[in-house]
C-alpha cells in the first residue's frame, strides 16, 4: 500500500509519536523497533534505518527517552531505549493533540478514522 503525498508529509511529524508509543510498555532496541513498526503497520510504514536512529537521538537529546547499552549472555550487545517520565507526558499530550486533529479532519474533509 502506497501513501499519497499528503500522508507522506504527515508521516514525518508522526515518527516521534510512533517511536514514543512503541517504547511506552517496555524498553526496546532500534532493530526491534523497525521490525515492530513494520509488522504492526502490515508493511505500510517503514523507517529508513538511519532516520529511525536520527529520531531516537533527537528524542534522547530532549530527554524523552534514555538509551543504554545492554549485554545479555549469548546475545549481541544492543542499545535499549526506555521512555522517561517526561516522554510519557509528551506522548499523552501528543496523543490528545493528534486525536483532536483527526477529529477535525474527519469533520472538515469527511475522512473516516480507520
Amino acid at each position: 500500500m502506497e501513501f499519497g503525498g499528503a500522508i507522506r508529509e504527515a508521516k514525518k511529524g508522526t515518527a516521534e509519536l510512533v517511536v514514543l508509543a512503541f517504547l511506552e510498555d517496555e524498553p526496546r532496541h532500534g532493530y526491534e523497533l523497525t521490525q515492530l513498526i513494520e509488522a504492526r503497520s502490515g508493511g505500510a510504514l517503514t523507517f529508513n534505518f538511519a532516520s529511525l536512529y536520527a529520531t531516537l537521538y533527537k528524542l534522547e537529546e530532549r530527554k524523552w527517552i534514555q538509551g543504554r547499552w545492554v549485554e545479555k549472555p549469548g546475545q549481541r550487545r544492543r542499545r535499549y531505549y526506555k521512555i522517561t517520565a517526561e516522554g510519557r507526558s509528551v506522548l499523552a499530550a501528543q496523543r490528545k493533540e493528534w486525536g483532536q486533529f483527526f477529529e477535525l479532519i474527519r469533520d472538515l474533509a469527511g475522512v473516516e478514522h480507520a
Binding site: 532496541h29 532500534g30 532493530y31 523497525t34 534505518f49 538511519a50 536512529y53 537521538y57 549481541r76 550487545r77 544492543r78 542499545r79
Partner: peptide, 12 residues
C-alpha cells in the same frame, strides 16, 4: 553511533 548502526545491520 557507528557501533549501534553496525549492530542494527548485523541484526538485519
Amino acid at each position: 553511533v557507528v557501533d549501534e548502526l553496525a549492530c542494527h545491520l548485523a541484526e538485519v
